[in-house]
Design a protein around this nucleic acid. Structure first.
Lengths: 230, 230
DNA sequence: CGGGCTTTGTGAACGCGTGCACGAGTGCCT
DNA sequence: AGGCACTCGTGCACGCGTTCACAAAGCCCG
């Protein structure tokens, strides 16, 4: 067992690209491609070839000069590095629009993240079936987390309940959280939190659109919009 | 009128944080807070105070030394910079799980991104009502985009159809795309694309979980742990 | 078996973003 | 009016990530 494997710290930027490489490699593997060059991988991934090589070099020297990378082997190495050699069951808090969509989306299970549970505070929702998953009470959270060995929680509640959901997840023993609510969650520093905020994404696009238009003309003094939070 | 306002390029990292500040400022405004310091704003936003000040300084010198920032005025300035002084209607391609959830989520319209249309290739879905929005044929895309002045498109299709959806959006005249499909879209360079990939987010969390486990043994020699039987 | 072609792996330079530290400006209190 | 406490705005240094460029290494072919 090579001990340097764990010691090596992979830059965040690289970690966020490894899943992309992994998906592309999987597609190529399905197409019967055995070997792939960093150039081709870069083209398919929409990035720089040098970046691909540097990213992959953090995993080790798994390429063959003059040839490229063996697809199957590289897939295995990336999976191992990302910890995808086994499943990571997730629990979803919030059975609203988003929670239902996430439960119904089969892509999670297929990619190694089966939905171990879907919980909600609303008693009227408990027991209903959503995308093949039965909604359970949020009080069952600790039991679900422990019995199913869940370490990743997904917050899909309205903004107002997000912090409570996070607190309950942490109390139940979850150590990573994917947050869809537009709020900054306050959690212990040992907990890993990632945020997906659709409004932020749209507003970034809005910035570029506005910039595109405002290229030459002066900004029109528009009326300020209503400033409601939620 | 200051002409440098349009010329000034705001760093990407700052642009991605402005929406966060904006949301917090809106909340504070609703709470009756008139003035806020960079320190407080940083605390609520989970970032560094110096970063807040530097970010806001790109907009101009809108703060008052010794006091802080006037909440209402700062909201207006950020909105103006982000182009949020008017609505940006969006069109959603794909009426599956995700497309339906997005349409049903009222938060978009409330934040200035009303759903101008929801289209799908599947003729059997056309005409059905989803979250108050009627599903229309994808052939109507050009008409929707032009009549409603849509410049932002959302790709919520399965992976296989995502490129086609993007092509149609671009052909219809959309200039920004928010892509939920796990694929690299190939579009003309003038088109702004942002990607939201849930699987990637989960895999990043997986990496840290895996690292957490593997790290306990012989890895982090940096921090001395309690010396027990090795 | 050697030369040429291909592609990896990486040292080094560059650029961007972050965080510190401090000067400068503002309001309040005596 | 003067001093003091507070907070913004920003120059500067540092670190991370990106990109270039090239040596090292493997394959193929005559």
């Amino acid at each position: 067992m090579a001990p340097d494997r764990n010691r090596r710290r992979i830059p965040d930027a690289t970690v966020s690209r490894l899943p992309v490489y992994l998906r592309i490699l999987g597609e190529q593997h399905d197409l019967g491609v055995d070997s792939i060059s960093s150039d081709r991988l870069a083209e398919l991934g929409g990035v720089n070839a040098a970046k691909v090589r540097k990213d992959l070099s953090y995993l080790g020297s798994y390429g063959t000069r003059g040839v490229g990378y063996e697809v199957a082997y590289l897939i295995f190495q990336i999976q191992r590095e990302l910890g995808l050699t086994h499943d990571w069951p997730v629990v979803i808090v919030g059975a609203g629009n988003l929670g239902q969509a996430l439960s119904g989306y089969g892509g999670f299970g297929a990619r190694g993240f089966p939905v171990a549970g879907l919980v909600d505070v609303d008693a009227s929702k408990v027991g209903t079936l959503v995308g093949g998953v039965r909604v359970r009470s949020i009080d069952e959270l600790p039991q679900i987390v422990q019995s199913k060995r869940v370490s990743i929680g997904i917050v899909a509640t309205p903004t107002a309940s997000a912090q409570d959901a996070a607190d309950r997840l942490v109390a139940a023993g979850v150590t990573s959280i994917l947050n869809f609510a537009p709020t900054v969650l306050s959690v212990p520093p040992s907990i890993e939190v990632r945020k997906v905020d659709l409004a932020v994404e749209l507003q970034i696009l809005s910035y570029h659109e506005q910039r595109r238009i405002a290229g030459g003309a002066a900004t029109t003094a528009a009326r300020p919009r209503a400033v409601s939070a939620s």
